[in-house]
């Protein structure tokens, strides 16, 4: 066995060396994209581990599904059919309005709205770190998902894709502290930026003067500025608008519209050129 003291010196050196390597890695990863391909590759290799970590929750879900009665399922089907009927009726008008809108825009000399198609994905994981607001979904680079794509659900903006492996993607939610969304008020047209407050809490609006035309209850939609999130998607509803003495900016809080805490499906937005071929005819539900 090696003498005690000799081993102690060895530890310090080795530890410092490894920690130094780690510090380099962390610095590189936080400021550049050089490690991205390694992370994607390794992430793809580790996908089985991710799948295994989903089993407990999936098992619990199947277990409760097993006990659902036939009547409940039949009622649910009826309700959904009625919903489809209502939605089909409203979307009939949508097609016509969309065309008219594009014609008017042409007349005014503005560019046409880009047609958007959606890819339905299922949420398969939630980042357990309470300081992060991120989810994992079950479509990845093999479905042409790319970093930067906006993600919505049926109620509003959910976030954007920040990482992608072959079969999964990671989405940063709008409520994450490092995410900011340029929005405008639907009522007044006021432009502002809302940032995530962390976890599943409310969004915070910054740098808006107290005299701005914004009220509690206003719907905020994406403004399309910054080319990150496409224009026109609902984001949140203003829940607090106030000004305290001595603060030149108003305190604004907005409650996100999307179902951010439910385990369900989300939709990844594609412009039609990027959409994988086989999805255009089937799953696309928007704009055609």
């Amino acid at each position: 066995m090696k003498p005690l003291f000799q081993k102690r010196v060895g530890i310090g050196v080795k530890a410092s060396g490894l920690i130094f390597v780690c510090v380099i890695l962390v610095s590189v990863d936080s400021s550049t994209l050089w490690l991205k391909s390694f992370k994607t590759l390794a992430g793809t290799a580790l996908e089985p581990v991710l799948m295994i970590s989903q089993w407990p929750n999936q098992a619990a879900d199947s277990f409760s599904d097993f006990f659902t009665t036939r009547k409940t399922l039949r009622d649910e089907i009826e309700r959904l059919n009625r919903q489809i009927l209502t939605m089909r009726t409203s979307s009939q008008k949508m097609a016509a309005l969309s065309q008219e809108n594009n014609r008017l825009r042409q007349l005014l000399g503005s560019s046409e709205r880009v047609q958007e198609a959606v890819l339905i994905t299922e949420i398969i994981g939630v980042d357990p770190n309470p300081n992060h607001a991120r989810i994992t979904v079950d479509k990845g680079t093999s479905d042409n998902v790319a970093i930067g794509q906006a993600v919505i659900d049926d109620r509003g903006l959910v976030g954007k894709v920040v990482a992608s492996t072959l079969g999964t993607s990671t989405i940063l939610l709008i409520t994450d502290q490092t995410q900011a969304v340029p929005v405008r008020s639907l009522r007044s047209g006021l432009q502002l930026i809302v940032e995530g407050g962390g976890g599943f809490a409310n969004l915070v609006g910054r740098y808006v003067p107290g005299t701005a035309d914004l009220r509690v209850g206003d719907t905020l939609v994406t403004s399309g500025l910054g080319q990150v999130f496409p224009n026109g998607y609902p984001v949140a509803v203003v829940s607090q608008f106030g000004q305290s003495q001595g603060n030149s900016f108003a305190t604004i809080q907005a409650k996100p519209l999307a179902h951010l805490s439910a385990r369900s499906h989300v939709l990844i937005l594609f412009s039609t050129e990027e959409m994988p071929e086989n999805y255009l005819n089937g799953a696309a539900i928007n704009g055609h």
Binding site: C22, V23, I24, V26, V28, D29, K39, L46, T170
Partner: peptide
């Protein structure tokens, strides 16, 4: 890699 945090953390 699997938790998506900064590599090396």
């Amino acid at each position: 890699v699997i938790s998506g945090s900064l590599l090396g953390l």
